[in-house]
Each structure stands twice: as C-alpha cells, then as structure tokens.
Write a protein that binds this DNA or RNA. Sequence first.
DNA 1: ACGCATAATATGTCTATACATTATTTCGAA
DNA 2: TTCGAAATAATGTATAGACATATTATGCGT
Lengths: 232, 232
Amino acid sequence: MALHDRIRTEIEGQILSGALKPGDKVPSEHELMAHYGCSRMTVSKALTALSGAGLLQRRKRAGTVVAPRPTETMVLDVPDLAVEIARRGQAYRFRLIAREVRKARPEDALDDGLARAGPLLFVRGVHCADDVPIAHEARYISLAAVPEIVEADFTRESPGSWLLRHIPWTEAENRIGAVGADAAWAPLLNLEPGAACLSIERKTWRGEARITLVRQSFVAGSFELVARFGAA
Amino acid sequence: MALHDRIRTEIEGQILSGALKPGDKVPSEHELMAHYGCSRMTVSKALTALSGAGLLQRRKRAGTVVAPRPTETMVLDVPDLAVEIARRGQAYRFRLIAREVRKARPEDALDDGLARAGPLLFVRGVHCADDVPIAHEARYISLAAVPEIVEADFTRESPGSWLLRHIPWTEAENRIGAVGADAAWAPLLNLEPGAACLSIERKTWRGEARITLVRQSFVAGSFELVARFGAA
DNA sequence: ACGCATAATATGTCTATACATTATTTCGAA
DNA sequence: TTCGAAATAATGTATAGACATATTATGCGT
C-alpha cells in the first residue's frame, strides 16, 4: 500500500473507532510529516482525500478537525429497472398507458421549475417483469429542454431509458417514501387501493434547466433500494 | 477556481454532457499538460479526483477512459430521526415496548452473522413526534459486541442514539422498501393492518463483528429519504 | 508464424521547494 | 483600552524532477 494510503487509512481508523471524535484536532501536516518521515505533499494527499470524503474539515491557519457526525450519508445504488429485472432472469417490458403534450395543471403538483418550463410531455405507463406489473410511472418532461422526445417510441422502451441515452442529466434528486396505491392506477398493478407501495420521486436537471420529474410506485416487495457505507 | 479544479470540471462536463461517452479515451497526462500549459502533478490531481469519483478508469500504459455507466450511484442522506423531528419543531420521544435478552429464533429472520453471534438484546419500541407515533422499530443487538448495553436506559433515549454515541460502526447497509403494516404492531402506530409503511432494514458492522440489525417501519408520509447527485 | 525477451508508454508515488491564501495572534498607536 | 495593522501559522496550489510499476507494442530467434 502506498504511504499516503497508509496515512489515510490510519487516520480514518482512528475516526471510525472513536479514538478521534468529531471536533478533535488532527495533527498538523508538519507534525504528520515528522511522524511518518515523509514530505508534506504526501500527508496533504491523505488529509485532502479524507476531507473530500467528508471525514475531516480543514481550515487554513486553524488546522484540521474531525467533521461532525462522521457519516450520516451513504452511497445509494440506483439500479436501472430494466437491468435489474434482467439480472433476475425476467423479461422487462414497459407498457404505455397514456401520452400527451399539455401544460402543467394544479393537480399535477409539480414544482415551480417544471411548471414554468412551458409545454410538457406527460407519459404514464407500467413497468412489467415477465408481464407481471411491478411499478406504475407518471412522468413529466420539459419539451423546451428535450424537443426531440416527441419522436420517441415508448411502446418498446421506457422514457427513463430513452432520456438516459439521449440527454444525460447533470444533477438529480430522489425522494423515497411509502404511499398507498391510488385508485387511479392500483388496478394496473393488480392491487387494492391503499395497498403498500414504495414511492420514488425523481427530479433531474441539466445545468440550470429542469428536464423531468417522475413518480414511480413499486408494488411492496417487488423492488428494494440498497445503500452502503464502509470498506468497499 | 484552482487550475486543477478547472481541468476536473471541464472533463467532468464533457462526460456529463455526453461529448465523452463511456469507453472513450481521455487525453493522456502529457497531452493535457501541453494543452493547459501546466505541470503533470496538476493534471494528475484532476484525473485522480475524477477516477475517485468513479467517472474515469485509469490503467498504466493503457491510459484513461470514461467509466461505463456514468455513475448510477447517489449520495443518500440518512438523518437521525430525533434530529429530523426536532428540526420540524416537534418533540421527539422513544416509547419502549419490549426489551429482553435471548437467543435468535427462526421467526426473527436474522442473517447468519448475527444469529451466530451469541446472545442478543432484543428491543422493540415506537418513535413519536409530539407523542404521535411515527415509526415502529425492532432491533437486535449482539451482546458479545456491545456488552455494556445491558446498562442502558431506553425509556429516554432510543437504542439507535445510544449505539451511535457508544460504539460507532465501520460499515453499514440499508435496505429500503415498502411493507404493509403488520398486525403485531399496526395498532401501536394507529394504523389498520396492511397500511402502507416505509421499511428500512439496517445492518451494522464494527470491523468483522456484527453489531446490530434494526427494522424500522415508518407511517407513510411521515418520513422521507432524499438522495442527491450533482453540484452541491 | 510463434513465443519470449525487451523496449516504450502511461500512470502511480514521492520529494523538495516556492508562493498564495486565510485565520488567528500579537502588539503598537491613538 | 480598544482598534487596527502586521507577524504568524496553517492549509491550498503549483512546479520540476525522479523513480516505480503495470501494460502494450516491438522485434528477434527459432
């Protein structure tokens, strides 16, 4: 292991083990280069990496301290639904229910960024695994941001995959919760209204421009999200 | 902005905009130092950062290429429930329902790591905001890993907060899904059995040793998880 | 043609140094 | 005493060079 990796690991270990608590001062670069007998660049690399990972906070002149609440963030895997279903050995299919170009309505409950973006493409459909419905999707796409989407064929490909291939986002936000199945789409998933569903609302941006908002509702037990923290 | 940050941002932009696609070769460090008129350390810093973020893959002699699947991972905020409720201006309270030391039973559906860890402390309780029940929690704690927990008082503090203060974990995994309220605890949350709940199952490790497994079920709408990707 | 040794290439690590930037501390003048 | 300027201590950025290491390309001998 490289020396800067060893330094990084040792300090990380002291933080994770609790030997160094949030707010504690970490030795300065000069003290560490004396301790390890190496140059300043090397210890700096280790400390900068830990700072980037959110474990340390560094301020000029004041020094380096352990960041508060070392970790209330985790890395969340957001699998592509088609890929995830294929990985289970099932056949993925997107069933298009509705598709129309229109303005935002109050009952859509859109955020301002998308509501003011002009005309929207509204798409509703169901994700299926081996023709068993797994999730309902309602999506709003800004035509100003993605004019070429009016040509897309969503009977074979989901809007999500199409967007991913054509215009990658630069920023995204997922809100994850639970919701009872709505009477409007519960029958599409063979559910009683009120049945438990995992709800994911995703907004994406490309620079300043809003691209899309999508609300997906997964039948309980059909889909799980996994978030991890720790050693790879 | 620092030069290495500028280089990093420009290449990142080309990847996110699609100008550079997965598998495409990125100019070598020598080409970039000629292009930007700087030293190799500077471009190396930019490329190493992008490699650490998962956008690039670097191999000696072969060069640097854009990583496949421009990162389907996001950063998930996992707020402490007590802090989150306090932030809403409500009073947090943990109501202890049951607490016992016993061996793992088949119906606990524990993973092998915890089931084989010896005697467990089993705790069940309800998280409340302004005395309104928000979530049910069932937790299993390895007494081998945390013997001093038998002294803890969970009538005032939740087991999660206690653990966080006493023995930080080094590794954790969250599984997030939806579940219908179980008849065993639905009344505690003033729910009908089968009502939609957000389900979070968390396992934590300290090095090789399993510490705890907790299953939390949140009343739909009472709690949301947020995951982000992109600029701050 | 084939396999193997060797050269070339690109990244990985590290040093020693220099100057810039930002807080903090110190100290002097009003 | 208090305010403000200057010294100081820490990190931030960057250079130029050196050697290490992994991988691919080349060419030689059979």
